[in-house]
Amino acid sequence: MIALSVNLNKVATLRNTRTYNYPSVVRAARTVLDAGAAGITIHPRPDARHIREQDVLDLAELMEEANYNKKEFNIEGYPNARFLSLVKRIKPNQVTLVPDSPDQLTSDHGWNLLNQNSFLFPIVTELKNIGCRVSLFSDAVPNFVEEIAKIGSDRIEIYTGYYFNTFRTPQNASVLKTIVDTAKAARNCGLGVNAGHDLTLKNLPTLVKSVPWLDEVSIGHHFIGEALWMGLEEVVQAYKDRLVLANTIS
């Protein structure tokens, strides 16, 4: 079964429009985990535009509780000194490294892996040594996969923004093929495969049918958007229903 990790950034974005702790990020985490999500994802950016350092600490405490200590805690971010210090303190199950600049709106591209191996290699090694699984955020470029494997990453997270942008257009077939080819290359190199960015209830089934060996999908913006109409518990179930398609392919 492909794991559903719910990104809670947008809950924190809404909370930050007021001076008090509502809606609670921790309550949202409890809700989606109790509803059957395999884990949660957060991205503590330097400007704290959504997730704050205290949220990271509070969620880490939550994930130690008996009800949740078998669930996945994924922290993503650019590996600057502050981020790495926080990760070392928390030791989440997975760290997803992204190449975001401090003022970037969202994670909309992967690492230039042909130029940054020497930068990433010692960071990946250090994170693995403290017990974290490491995933590198990458564009769907099959030729990058071998470089990711050389760096020592455990997984690749394929950026699916272009897949969303072209969905139900003539261009989508070629975009999807590149994702599939990248996922195949990752599997051949012994890497796990995650996917994320702008995955929706509408476009997820096609991706899942094409790459049924995905390990995890991370979904936030559209998940929280659907929750406005359906509720958090119902959206967890709706996305899980889409993921079951991976196990029903003949």
Score class of each variant (00 low, 15 high):
162 Y>S: 14
232 L>T: 03
101 S>M: 05
197 H>V: 14
102 P>T: 13
145 V>P: 05
151 I>M: 04
237 Q>D: 11
117 N>H: 13
150 K>L: 11
247 N>M: 14
213 W>E: 15
133 R>D: 11
201 L>M: 07
82 R>A: 07
43 H>K: 02
82 R>N: 05
99 P>C: 11
26 V>M: 08
89 R>Q: 12
239 Y>D: 06
109 H>Y: 12
184 K>M: 08
187 R>C: 14
131 G>R: 00
82 R>G: 01
33 L>V: 08
95 V>T: 10
232 L>R: 01
129 N>F: 10
25 V>N: 00
235 V>Q: 06
8 L>Y: 06
147 E>N: 13
87 V>G: 05
163 Y>C: 11
114 L>G: 03
174 S>R: 05
71 K>Y: 05
211 V>L: 08
247 N>Y: 11
37 A>M: 02
136 L>D: 05
46 P>H: 06
177 K>I: 08
38 A>C: 04
140 A>E: 04
244 V>G: 07
25 V>I: 08
237 Q>N: 09
129 N>Q: 13
42 I>K: 01
180 V>K: 02
171 Q>P: 07
23 P>Y: 10
94 Q>I: 12
155 R>N: 13
117 N>L: 14
179 I>L: 13
129 N>T: 09
208 V>E: 04
233 E>G: 13
168 R>E: 14
189 C>E: 14
206 T>A: 08
184 K>L: 14
183 A>N: 02
242 R>S: 15
123 I>N: 00
58 D>M: 09
111 W>S: 03
105 L>K: 15
150 K>E: 13
40 I>R: 00
3 A>N: 12
153 S>N: 06
72 E>D: 04
64 E>C: 09
179 I>N: 03
70 K>R: 08
36 G>N: 07
89 R>T: 15
93 N>Q: 10
80 N>D: 15
37 A>H: 05
53 E>A: 10
9 N>I: 03
75 I>L: 14
114 L>S: 07
94 Q>C: 13
156 I>W: 02
99 P>R: 08
171 Q>R: 12
82 R>T: 10
38 A>P: 00
129 N>A: 15
109 H>F: 11
93 N>R: 08
46 P>N: 04
83 F>I: 11
112 N>E: 07
43 H>M: 07
157 E>D: 05
85 S>G: 07
71 K>T: 08
63 M>F: 02
219 I>F: 08
230 M>G: 04
36 G>A: 08
235 V>R: 01
172 N>D: 15
76 E>I: 11
28 A>I: 06
81 A>K: 12
127 L>Y: 04
68 Y>T: 05
190 G>W: 03
241 D>R: 09
119 F>D: 10
2 I>N: 00
238 A>V: 12
162 Y>G: 06
158 I>C: 01
202 K>E: 15
246 A>V: 03
70 K>L: 07
215 D>Q: 10
56 V>A: 01
43 H>W: 07
9 N>Q: 01
134 V>E: 13
218 S>H: 09
6 V>R: 01
143 N>L: 07
166 T>A: 13
165 N>H: 12
247 N>R: 14
232 L>G: 02
124 V>A: 09
151 I>R: 00
237 Q>Y: 05
7 N>R: 06
72 E>P: 00
221 H>Q: 10
207 L>V: 04
72 E>N: 08
230 M>I: 04
181 D>Q: 11
141 V>I: 14
